[in-house]
Amino acid sequence: MNLLRAWATGIPAYLWSGWGAVASLMMLLALWDWGSQLYGDLVLPSPLATFDTLAGLLAEGGAWQELAVTARRALAGFALSLAVGSVLGLLAGLSMTASMMSRPIVTVLVGMPPIAWLVLALLWFGAGDATPVFTVFIACFPIIFVGALQGTRTLDDQLKDVARAYRLPARMTLTDVYLPHVLSYLFPAWIAALGMSWKIVVMAELLSTPDGVGAALAVSRAHLDTAASMAWIAAVVGLLLAVEYLVLEPVKREVESWREVQ
């Protein structure tokens, strides 16, 4: 509850601090517009044309649905890997043997290209929700797992001794000693995984499903409709930025307010 209130009251000041980010995004738009003037609308539609098309797509109503489908899949896969990866990583970190055993496996998982998982998922699950959700899950899992593992392994032994000398019950040791430290490793991992989940879900949809933003991108590509392709890309990136900067970042700031450097 406290967290929610802090989040809500912190938003205006936080947004105000975002002018620097806005300025740099504007530079990017200017560059984009310059490229479009250089190469023409067919190769690179101007930002204005892109956002026009996006507004049109959204006004028609169908776009919201596609975005919702994509968001559902991305967030489902992300939530799954967040839950499984955080818990397993924490548990593995508590035991020296488990963390040594899991390292090589995680390295293999990280090294495996997502497209390979996608092919396997297509064979296993066919063209349904399960394929993109699984691909997102398996691509995000190792990132989060490693974050939780490292967070647990790096907790200061001296603080563990404090927990024992002051007879902290197991639950309190977890919530008051382990979790705050592990969270500082987990949050960056979560944010990286979230970005990953949006990229993977669009790729998976492009190849495997009849609906969602990825499928819409496949259609617009088939029609050589560059403006619509750019519009979909802008929509996905916009959603990702919104989730990351409006939800995860402020929560992170609040949770880590004890840190010296923000």
């Binding site: 001296q158 404090v162 008051d176 000693v177 705050p180 004890w258």
Partner: peptide, 10 residues
């Protein structure tokens, strides 16, 4: 303890 060993997040 020899060092304060306070929990930095509390």
């Amino acid at each position: 303890f020899q060092q304060p060993r306070l929990l930095p997040w509390k």
